[in-house]
Simulated scan of single mutants.
Amino acid sequence: MMNWDDLRYFLALVDCGTLTGAARRLQVEHTTVARRIDALEAALKLRLFDRLVRGWQLTTEGHDLVAHAREVEERWFNFERKALSTSKMEGIVRISAPPSLSTFVLAPQLKKLCTSLTGVELELQAERHQVSLGKREADIALRMARPQTAGLVIKPLANVGYGLYASKTYLKKHKEEDWEFVAYEKNSATPHHQWLEDYLMPRKVVLRSNDQMVLAQCAAAGLGVAVLPHYLRQSHRDLQRIEQQACPMRRKLWLVMHDDVRRSPRVRAVADGLIELFSSAEVSDLLT
Rank of each mutant, 00 (worst) to 15 (best):
S100E: 13
S100F: 01
S102R: 01
S102F: 00
T103G: 00
F104Y: 09
F104K: 02
V105C: 04
L106G: 05
A107D: 03
A107Y: 00
P108N: 05
Q109M: 08
Q109W: 04
L110Y: 09
K111T: 13
K112Q: 15
K112D: 14
C114N: 08
C114L: 07
C114V: 07
T115G: 07
S116C: 13
L117N: 09
T118G: 08
T118P: 03
G119H: 04
V120W: 06
V120I: 15
V120S: 10
E121Q: 12
E121A: 02
L122W: 05
E123F: 04
L124V: 10
Q125S: 08
Q125I: 09
Q125T: 06
A126L: 00
A126N: 00
A126M: 02
E127N: 06
E127K: 10
R128V: 06
R128L: 06
R128M: 04
H129F: 12
H129L: 09
V131E: 13
V131K: 12
S132P: 11
S132I: 08
L133P: 14
G134C: 11
K135G: 03
E137C: 06
A138G: 05
D139S: 06
D139A: 09
I140Q: 06
I140T: 11
I140C: 10
I140Y: 06
I140A: 07
A141V: 13
A141M: 15
L142K: 13
L142V: 09
L142T: 14
R143L: 15
